[in-house]
Write a protein that binds this DNA or RNA. Structure first.
Lengths: 338, 338
DNA sequence: ATCGTTGTATTCAACGTTGTAAACAGGTTT
DNA sequence: AAACCTGTTTACAACGTTGAATACAACGAT
């Protein structure tokens, strides 16, 4: 069984018309008599013809594909985001191709450098390890929208959440419930880790505003933002002999890990230790206790990102980089006595 | 700023060689003097040339892209699978494009029908609502690998887990811990819901083998397999006045939802009610109590699926459909007293 | 000198599509 | 009868790439 690849040519021959007429029918061009139209449509059905997208793309210079580059697909926050982006893109007639960077700088550089050049019309990128210099060095001119804090004043649009304010609000909420020793889990050493830096800043601002001393021993560093890191960090806090009465985790996965350690060791939450997270992933809404968290408007993030990208793809206009700020909300749940 | 689209042509002009020579350099053809090679490479760098994949694909008839069609990206099981598939595909030099079907039959038909024809070289498909007839009616001849139970003896390869045996093993484990009233959450009315049907069958087989009567009131039906469905189903069980002392949930999300309801109402797990799930998603390993579950070898599923697909793409050989069975393991955790 | 051989580079055509411009009918206006 | 529409269809070129065939040296072997 060979490959009987059918093209416009074959349909045209069968229908007894020119190639272009078939193309016209396929594209819904108006000036085609219903007679020819139906003849062509019959031929299309008979041959089971499908337009070749590669050829169409080549001709038109666009592919209708955008890439979404995230660190890991099975981090719930990114999974939710991916779903929303795919949906939003669909409404623009765009298909999404997903790249996993694994949070590796090398891989992120590759993505920014446009190794899918000419295959994608645009890129929505959530970088973790990339430095501003890396972004500045970007040669590829594929339209790009960055998710996360603005790290570089280059020509790329940004969709951001006010991490500092949100982290501060979460920490202040812990303080408002009467907690005195509020720990933080999620600091990182890597200077490129913007998210960590900003949330830590918000945490510290809150402590200052609440008149509490900042204590280095209460700030736990982590390698990544997975449950296991949160669990280990919590164990370190408990073992330090300086057990906190509240913990602000820089994302919900860390919080879920910390929660596991607390419960495993018999500490009551929120009775003994209160817990707050960031991201509002679904897991946190079904954990026991449910997790208090900062809920960024993910729907808005996805929609804005796709809209910005679509706009930039349309008019190649290098209108200067726009920054869209998306709302968030503090969701008070059981883990802080909500 | 216009689009200064650079092609082989431009590089060739700058380097003073023919287009084909540039193409040869790009493709690593051996018979090129190092002199010309470096001249060409310099030109490539200077113009920041990137090969146009659409053109290459058109010429070669392949795109190097495969699609992965799953119901929802933010169901942890599929998110994990997606990550593994993307990774496995990368090792074959393939890029993955993700389709979300939303478990809608219409959308699944569209995918099977090949609406991305000529854009993807192959398809890994995890259908939920598709009927065997739908698959039989498939006209598109893009290579396809199905995940999940074999629903049709057509020309598609399958990667399957023995759902009946696994469900039976989980249920028998519950029985072995001395439980007498073992409920099931996850039955579905839709006749196309193969997964549900098979796991229910395994559950019933186990009851029979353990010499327990099957009780319709203990079998809870659900719309979808999300946490919320599990929570509601558990509430119905508790409200029925016929509270079970164990529940086998057809996936981990249902189990997590059920767990939430149990704890919320003050029932001890596993003390009062034992709980088992299916899929072994990470959430279940950090819940309190941790969830006993069936752990399919997801890594193997992803790898086998990609390997099968790659093989079928290579030799268009219509060697008859193969079925690969993947291992699973019962993970005994706290929710059954492990 | 002539014939291969080997390495290097080029020309040509084709992949399947669509935009442009032009051809063709039929009907209306001058 | 010529000129001009309007609607329908077509021929042609081009998008950027690569496989096949070929040209052209330079070199040894005959």
């Amino acid at each position: 069984m060979e490959k009987p690849r059918v093209g416009l040519k074959d349909v045209a021959r069968l229908a007894g018309v020119s190639v272009k007429t078939v193309s016209n029918v396929v594209n819904g061009y108006v000036h085609v008599t219903s007679a020819t139209r139906s003849r062509v449509e019959a031929a299309i059905k008979e041959l089971n013809y499908r337009p070749n997208l590669s050829a169409r793309n080549l001709r038109q210079g666009r592919t209708g594909i955008i890439a979404l580059a995230v660190p890991e697909l099975d981090i719930p926050y990114f999974a939710e985001l991916a779903r929303l982006v795919v949906t939003a893109a669909g409404e623009h007639g765009l298909t999404v191709l997903i790249d996993q960077t694994g949070a590796s700088r090398e891989r992120e550089q590759l993505v920014a450098e446009g190794f899918r050049a000419h295959l994608i019309d645009g890129l929505i990128f959530s970088p973790l390890a990339l430095t501003p210099e890396d972004l500045a060095a970007r040669m590829d001119d594929t339209p790009m929208v960055l998710l996360g804090e603005r790290v570089y004043d280059g020509p790329a649009d940004h969709v951001v959440v006010d991490n500092v304010a949100a982290a501060k609000e979460a920490t202040l909420h812990l303080a408002a419930t009467g907690r005195r020793r509020i720990a933080a889990i999620g600091a990182q050493d890597d200077p490129a880790a913007e998210t960590s830096r900003l949330r830590l800043a918000g945490y510290l601002e809150a402590l200052a505003e609440a008149g509490m001393p900042a204590d280095d021993r209460l700030v736990q560093h982590v390698e990544t933002y997975h449950r296991a890191d949160g669990a280990r960090a919590m164990a370190r806090l408990l073992d330090s002999g300086q057990a906190p009465d509240a913990v602000f985790c820089f994302n919900d996965l860390l919080a879920l890990g910390a929660l596991r350690t607390l419960l495993e060791r018999g500490h009551a939450v929120p009775g003994e230790v209160a817990l707050a997270g960031f991201d509002d992933i679904e897991d946190g809404r079904y954990a026991t206790p449910t997790i208090t968290t900062i809920s960024p408007d993910k729907q808005a993030i996805a929609r804005q990102a796709v809209d910005l990208l679509a706009a930039r793809m349309a008019k190649g206009s290098p209108a200067e980089a726009r920054e869209v700020r998306v709302a968030y909300e503090l969701m008070i749940r059981e883990s802080t006595g909500g």
